[in-house]
Amino acid sequence: MPSSPADESTGALKSVREEQRLMTWRRIVKAARRVFEEHGYGQASIGDITKVARVNRATFYLHFANKAAVFNEVYAEVREQQSSHYWAMLDEGLTAGTKDALRSVLDRALAWWEEQAALLPAIHEAMASDLEVASRWKDQLDQLAGELHGYLGQFPEEERDARRLRVQLMVMQLDQLCFRAIVQKVFVIDRDVLLDVVCDLWVDSLQFSRESGTS
């Protein structure tokens, strides 16, 4: 049966409303990132976010249950930008099994952290103080580590969980190091020196060849 004019009008109205809802959601997330970058996680408030987004609290709560929920969306977008290429790149470098390949991956990983420097304090603060955020981060880390098909496929099945965990721990260590060196600047180290040291740590932990171009 063909749609009546009334049905088509109702469908068009629903589409417009959905688009408006999505635009508002995006505006809140964008505003939240700005607030978290400027104030950190603990000092940021829902009032700050609604002010920047130019919405009222009722509108905010139509989209998000609390501050942690909107932060998770901000962080998910950051992780999505990273995971779209970083984990595939990491898998390729790990599969190659050489120091040169690994150093190239870590170089690009450091560049990513440098690009996200403004948000890193809020990320670390949120994970330390909010279990909901920390749990979401762990879920994402598990999911992304599960994408290391090429690297993990090189080992017997009974070894893969331990190998995956080893990579996860190295990523967590890199995250902490980037925070201390890039954001807090506790370690004032030449970038190339830092990269060489980190690469050596990964080579030792993952038992890679130190020879260029060999596995």
Rank of each mutant, 00 (worst) to 15 (best):
V167Q: 09
Q43C: 10
R103M: 05
D204V: 06
A88R: 02
T10N: 10
D7M: 05
V183A: 09
R79N: 15
R34G: 01
W112E: 15
L141V: 05
H39M: 12
W113Q: 13
R136Y: 15
S129I: 02
S129Y: 09
D200E: 07
Y61L: 04
A68D: 14
V188G: 03
A126N: 13
F208D: 02
G153C: 06
A101E: 07
R79L: 10
E115K: 11
F60L: 04
C178E: 08
R33L: 06
L90D: 09
A145I: 00
F179L: 07
A31T: 02
L110V: 02
E147R: 04
V29M: 10
R166Y: 06
R210A: 03
K51V: 11
M23Y: 10
R191Q: 04
D48L: 14
T10Y: 13
V105A: 06
L174P: 14
S212T: 06
R136V: 02
D204E: 04
K30R: 13
F179S: 11
E80R: 15
E77R: 15
D190L: 03
V29F: 10
T50H: 01
A88F: 02
H63A: 08
S215Y: 01
R160L: 05
R160N: 05
A76G: 11
Q81M: 12
A6N: 03
D196R: 04
A109Q: 09
V70F: 11
Q20D: 15
N72Q: 15
G213P: 00
E8F: 12
W112N: 12
W87S: 12
K99P: 02
Q168V: 04
E18N: 13
E157M: 12
V188P: 04
L206G: 00
I28R: 03
P5V: 13
A162F: 08
L106C: 07
F71M: 11
V193C: 00
V188K: 05
F179R: 08
R34N: 02
A12I: 04
V74H: 12
G153L: 04
E132P: 01
Q184R: 13
L106S: 03
V186T: 10
F64M: 13
V74D: 09
I28H: 01
P2I: 10
D190Q: 03
H149P: 02
L144Q: 09
Q143P: 01
A88S: 14
Q116D: 12
S209V: 05
R163L: 07
P5L: 11
P121H: 08
S15F: 10
V16Y: 12
V35M: 10
D48H: 10
G40R: 08
E115S: 09
H124K: 14
F155V: 00
A12G: 07
F64K: 14
A101K: 01
R166I: 11
Q81H: 15
A6I: 08
T98I: 13
L174K: 07
T214A: 09
L22M: 08
I46L: 07
W112Q: 14
S45T: 15
V197L: 13
L194W: 07
W137T: 07
V183F: 05
V74E: 09
L201G: 00
K138M: 12
S9R: 10
Q82H: 14
F187R: 01
Q154D: 05
W202E: 00
G42R: 09
Q82K: 13
L194G: 03
G97Y: 06
V167T: 01
E125P: 12
I49L: 08
N66G: 06
H149K: 02
F64Y: 15
V186W: 03
I182R: 08
L174C: 04
T214G: 00
L131R: 15
A31I: 03
